[in-house]
Design a protein around this nucleic acid. Sequence first.
DNA 1: CGAAAAATTGACCCGATTCAATTCAAGTGG
DNA 2: CCACTTGAATTGAATCGGGTCAATTTTTCG
Lengths: 218, 218
Amino acid sequence: MRHLCMPEGLSADDTAKLEGVICSTRPILRGEALFRAGDVFESLFAIRSGSLKTVVSHEGGREQVTGLYLSGDALGLDGIGENTHICDAIALEDSSVCLIPYALFERVCRETGAIQRRLHQMMSREIVRETSQMMTLGTLRADERVARLLLDLSARFTRRGYAAAEFTLRLTRDEMGSYLGITLETVSRTLSRFQKLGLIDARGKLIRIRDFDGLRGI
Amino acid sequence: MRHLCMPEGLSADDTAKLEGVICSTRPILRGEALFRAGDVFESLFAIRSGSLKTVVSHEGGREQVTGLYLSGDALGLDGIGENTHICDAIALEDSSVCLIPYALFERVCRETGAIQRRLHQMMSREIVRETSQMMTLGTLRADERVARLLLDLSARFTRRGYAAAEFTLRLTRDEMGSYLGITLETVSRTLSRFQKLGLIDARGKLIRIRDFDGLRGI
DNA sequence: CGAAAAATTGACCCGATTCAATTCAAGTGG
DNA sequence: CCACTTGAATTGAATCGGGTCAATTTTTCG
């Protein structure tokens, strides 16, 4: 959490300013939307606890999971450009988010270089994350995509102080597939194969990675 | 061009400030790199004339075109987060770019709300563009991807004052395929099919769209 | 003009989707 | 607390879209 709300590199004074921007926190129940495509953009959000997915819906019923956000991640940056959100943000479990009114945040950014830099960093990193996801969708085979998702999540959980090798995946097979651009059946088959190869231990949503290098080598 | 360098909604004073940030312009020959993955990030770039692609290279030789930038577009936002570029930016034709030293730009943003807003807009729109590309790569069939690329380029050329129905595509079939996550052969076959269906007229790199609604309906 | 790169087209093949049938897990209410 | 319902996950069989390999043709550019 502190990554975002109290980033290192800020003076005590700056930190106080940043805390002043966080107006309130909001709980969201599993399955609820924090915002929806078309909603007017007013605030950024920082996840205090829990996890959310972002989903884009196409005309014609097709939809895709475009992002996966854990505690400390920032959400809502898509809305800045046109003052409107372009995706739904849905809680994957009961979660809690900080609310950061954008108009206020913008003003504080102008006052404090360190905070400004933090916002720009957040946005740029989101761009980099999406570029990486485009690589995944554009060039990898199905099993490579699944392996990459598991390793990515493991790394992100680790950075948050959780175990690297064991975590609860809050996504259904369907959501995983949607995120990776493959079908839920392919996800399921791939996980089964990984299990048979001794790379992972998957009992439902609980995933245990047994062979990191093996996964990386897929 | 003016979209970026002299956005409407800025006062004469703000415009002057913005012009002060644009230190110099730089020509790039077709095939040359404006920056490369790993380069230290120092400046943003705005395209004055021409067009560039961004390319990400994977370990193992695989690479993907992740972006396509025309005159007026901003380039280099990926570097802000970690002070390092993550992709190569390569000129698709002889082009010219404005150089915007980031340290200077950051300072001006702090002084002027309107300019700050413009930067945030640029970054947010890049996020939205990438999200849209993720949709393309994750959910569309090959022919839908090609149709979407043609329509997208047509719209972008139109906004720049060029003809909507006819434009020169600076990408090779290989680059198109890489951008769309399909092979060059599939691109070629799809374009031939579109031609046979009377949707387009493609003579090499010169594309003429004959039936917009038909393309949209693919 | 001629070499090299790009594009087209065909034939074959394979990975992933689709369709379908169970099995498993998770809530819910009697 | 357990049967019941419902959504999620697994697995198999058949199909197909797009990839791969290869042979020509066309275009580009030094």
